[in-house]
Amino acid sequence: MREYIRMVAVLTAIAAVCGLLLAAVKKGTEKRIEEQILVNVQGPALNNVLASSTNDIIQDREEITVDQEIKIVFLGKKNGQIWAIAFEMTAMGYKGKIGVMVGFDLEKDRLTGIGILTHQETPGLGARVSEPIFTNNFKDRVISEIFKVKKDNGTIDAVSGATISSRAVCSAVEQSIVLYSAIKDQVVKKK
């Protein structure tokens, strides 16, 4: 019996010390990891969709609450003025979620462009939605257009053999247009 108690006590003590240590390390690295993910995952797409901005886009991000959900919005500034915003929107693709960064020009109410952040689509097929030949479909378009693939009577050229993945990207764009209209005023006020 005594041996048993000792076993449990030692294991608990080890687990407790390890847990505390890990919590401390987690706390210490949390901020940096978050930033590293933004720089490395969102960064390239952001630099693309908010191309002519002069500010540090990743530093100038805001959290905006819509329907009790927090959305991170990246602000692109020119001469200190916010000219465009971008945020991430996801939709279900063929194999999993596709994360799409969508940029909007605030003055012209136009899409500046999109960039695919994360996806698990099939290489050579669905994965090709991340190539410029597809994403350029969304470059500099008025937001009142209908973003659907041609098969669904839209205007977007789907990646051949990957209608589902292309549809997912379109639906992410349409969702983000809805969100954009909802938050635009909040952002403009902050200017």
Binding site: T122, P123, G124, L125, G161, T163, I164
Partner: peptide, 9 residues
């Protein structure tokens, strides 16, 4: 697997 998937679609 890719070709099968393409066939399926």
């Amino acid at each position: 697997d890719n070709s099968l998937q393409a066939l399926m679609i």
